[in-house]
Amino acid sequence: MRLLTGSLLAFLIATLVGLGATYLALTRGGAFGALTIGSWTAFPKTGTIDADPYARAAIARTGRLVTGVGDGVSFTAMRDDKGKPLDGRCDVTVSGITPQARFWTLTLYSTAGNLVANSLNRPGFTSQEIVRRADGTFEIAVTPRAHAGNWLPTGGIERYVLVLRLYDTPVGVSTKAGREVPMPAITTGDCR
């Protein structure tokens, strides 16, 4: 009887721990080989045949087609440089320069990965559309209300993610975070 209750308890613990860990791994996201620069994180290895089991499970569960490394690298930001989650009711500024790439795009998504409807019908910017300063740096205003310059409307949603995709870039699996890969800063200003 003691053996029976003992093994039942062990199985119960196993189920809770095992499925709980799987659930957490899939909802929090995550794979090995993260490349984090500032607020931006990419998983270059997820775009190769060597993608680890966690990346494979996340790909299957979300139904996305990841960017292959021969194509480019996709950086995601969910928080600003101070660690505050990106809020669509606040004035957020993305400024600076990007790593070397032939083209890049910056896109605003809901946390589920859908585009967000807005009055301008503008889901993001490409590197060719952006207005730059004389020194080559740029500043994108990610705000709910109209803004001069590069305005990326948030549609007023509470939480969003920014995805910066670099196409035809030397940034890849072997890249280490450092001075040679500068990513734009993300700062939150006033909130309404």
Binding site: G6, S7, L9, A10, F11, L12, I13, A14, T15, L16, V17, G18, L19, A21, T22, A25, L26, P53, Y54, R56, A57, I59, A60, R61, G63, R64, L65
Partner: peptide, 30 residues
């Protein structure tokens, strides 16, 4: 302690096998 230890080891096996098997059962992948 033994029960807890056995539970944790089995839990790790459950976790790894569900992660590995999940892509085979996904019905909403791309």
């Amino acid at each position: 302690l033994m029960i807890l230890l056995v539970g944790l080891v089995l839990g790790a096996i459950v976790h790894l096998s569900t992660i590995i098997l999940l892509p085979l059962t996904a019905t909403r992948d791309a």
